[in-house]
Amino acid sequence: MLDTSYTIRQDAMPEEMRFLLETYPRDSWEAHPGFKEKTRQWLGAHQMCRRVAEQIRRDTEVILDRGMALDDYAGRLSSYGGSLVGNLHGHHSWEDHAYFPELSEADPRFDAGLELLEKDHSDLDAVLDGFTRSANRLIKLTTLDEAQAYDEAGQVHAASATIEAFLKRHLTDEEELAVPLILHHRLRG
Score class of each variant (00 low, 15 high):
residue 11 D to K: 12
residue 11 D to G: 10
residue 14 P to W: 02
residue 17 M to C: 13
residue 17 M to L: 12
residue 18 R to Y: 03
residue 21 L to Y: 08
residue 22 E to Y: 02
residue 24 Y to T: 02
residue 25 P to E: 08
residue 25 P to K: 10
residue 27 D to A: 13
residue 27 D to I: 08
residue 27 D to N: 14
residue 29 W to N: 02
residue 31 A to T: 09
residue 31 A to P: 03
residue 31 A to V: 07
residue 33 P to N: 14
residue 35 F to E: 02
residue 36 K to N: 12
residue 38 K to L: 09
residue 39 T to G: 04
residue 41 Q to V: 14
residue 43 L to M: 08
residue 47 Q to V: 01
residue 47 Q to W: 03
residue 51 R to W: 00
residue 53 A to D: 01
residue 56 I to H: 01
residue 59 D to Y: 11
residue 60 T to G: 00
residue 60 T to F: 06
residue 61 E to W: 06
residue 61 E to A: 11
residue 62 V to K: 15
residue 64 L to I: 06
residue 64 L to W: 03
residue 66 R to S: 12
residue 66 R to E: 10
residue 67 G to I: 03
residue 70 L to C: 03
residue 70 L to E: 01
residue 71 D to K: 07
residue 72 D to H: 11
residue 75 G to R: 10
residue 76 R to Y: 01
residue 78 S to Q: 13
residue 83 S to P: 00
residue 84 L to P: 01
residue 84 L to C: 01
residue 89 H to W: 03
residue 90 G to W: 04
residue 91 H to N: 09
residue 93 S to K: 10
residue 94 W to V: 11
residue 97 H to K: 14
residue 99 Y to A: 15
residue 101 P to L: 06
residue 104 S to L: 11
residue 104 S to D: 10
residue 107 D to W: 00
residue 107 D to F: 04
residue 110 F to T: 00
residue 112 A to I: 05
residue 112 A to S: 13
residue 113 G to A: 09
residue 114 L to P: 03
residue 115 E to N: 09
residue 119 K to W: 07
